[in-house]
Structures are given as C-alpha cells and as structure tokens.
Simulated scan of single mutants.
Amino acid sequence: MRTDAVTPLDPTTASQLRASGYTYFEVGATRGEMPSGYHHQRRETAIGTGHDRFVQCARAIMTWQVQLRAGIAVATTDATVVEGTVARLAIGVGPVRIHAPARVVYVVDEPRHAGFAYGTLPGHPELGEELFAVEHRDDDTVVFGVAAFSRSGSRLTTVAGPLGPLAQKFVAGRYLRGMASLPQP
C-alpha cells in the first residue's frame, strides 16, 4: 500500500468492511462531549488565515491528505470522503505494518467549518473515533484540529499499555505538522 497517494480498496475488503459494525457504541460522539472510559485527545493548531486557506485545507482533509502527509497509507472506497466511506489505513513497513479499518461516521460541510470523523471497525487495533476538521474563525484565523476517543481494541494495544496513547499523540502531532506545512495558496 502506497503512502503518497490514496489507493482503491479492493472490492472484497470493501464489501467486508461495509458489512461490519463499529467496534464501539458511542458512534458520533466526537461531535460533542466525548464518552468516559476512553483516552481523550483534542489538539489544534493555527495554519494560516483567510478564506482561500480554509478552502485549501478543507479540500486536503476531504481527500485524505491529513493521513497521507502523516505517512499513513490509505486504501479507500472513495478518494473524496463522504459519509459511509470505508478505508483501511496502514502505518509501518513490511511485516511491522499495522492495518486499521475504519468507516466515515459523519462529514462536516459548513461555510466556516469542514471535516469528517471516522470510527473503528473490526481489525482496528483501537476502539473509538477520530475527527479531523478545519475552522475559519471570526478573527480570520484558520485552525486545524484533531479530536479522538479511543481505548485498546487488540492484544497488541493491550500489551502496549500506556504506549498506545503516546503513539496516538505522536501521530496526531504528525497530522498537525502535515497540515501546517501545506504550501499557502
């Protein structure tokens, strides 16, 4: 799986993921107060100013550039995110590659706020949901943010213990830096 471009998800895997249920009950909870019993993360960074920057960043989010720019491979049913899109994300190299199936829970498409959240499916090492969004604030600042709630969903992440949340914090930092490094329009 390439990490520099989105690749199509093979039809068999896509069908299996579409038929799978989420691995957690609180679907959509990144819209507001996140549920207890999970590790929570909310991070954001200013990435520029103006309407053109907002539009550029919204387009990048909706075409998986957040993940790709963080070094995560994306195989998906839709190169442009829509509600219900399924994807298999992957990080790592060769036999140390971790696959993370997910489905888009909701899309935000407002004049000054855009993004999407995906939730974990069976086979994902974590249970939970993650939101990627950009906001064009009243002071003209464009802010990119990530919000997530998660807990261990596999033996690997259970054994990793406190390293799991640290790894997620590290990857969230890569998301933020990747979006901040988008060349200005």
Rank of each mutant, 00 (worst) to 15 (best):
G119R: 06
R97A: 03
P111I: 05
P111Q: 07
F116H: 06
L127A: 14
Y118I: 00
Y118Q: 04
H99A: 15
R97T: 15
V108P: 04
P111V: 05
A100H: 15
G119T: 00
V96L: 15
V107I: 05
G128D: 00
A117P: 11
R112I: 13
F116L: 02
P95R: 07
H99P: 09
V96S: 13
A102K: 08
D109E: 09
P111H: 02
P111C: 11
R97L: 08
P95Q: 10
R97E: 04
Y118S: 02
V104R: 00
V108T: 14
V96W: 13
H99R: 13
H124S: 00
V105Y: 00
T120C: 08
R112Y: 13
R112C: 14
P122E: 10
G115A: 11
Y118A: 00
L127Q: 15
P122I: 11
G123S: 06
A102N: 13
A102Q: 14
V96N: 14
E110G: 03
G119Y: 02
V108D: 13
R112K: 13
G119V: 01
E126S: 06
A102R: 09
E126R: 04
V105Q: 00
L121P: 12
V96M: 14
P95E: 02
G128L: 00
V108E: 11
A117F: 05
P125F: 00
R97K: 09
R97Q: 07
P125A: 02
A100Y: 15
G119S: 03
A114S: 14
A102Y: 10
V108I: 10
G123T: 03
A114W: 07
R112A: 14
A114I: 12
V96Q: 14
V104K: 05
G115R: 10
I98E: 01
A100V: 13
T120D: 05
P122T: 09
H99I: 04
R97Y: 08
F116P: 03
G115H: 12
P101E: 15
V108L: 08
V108R: 10
P101K: 13
H124R: 03
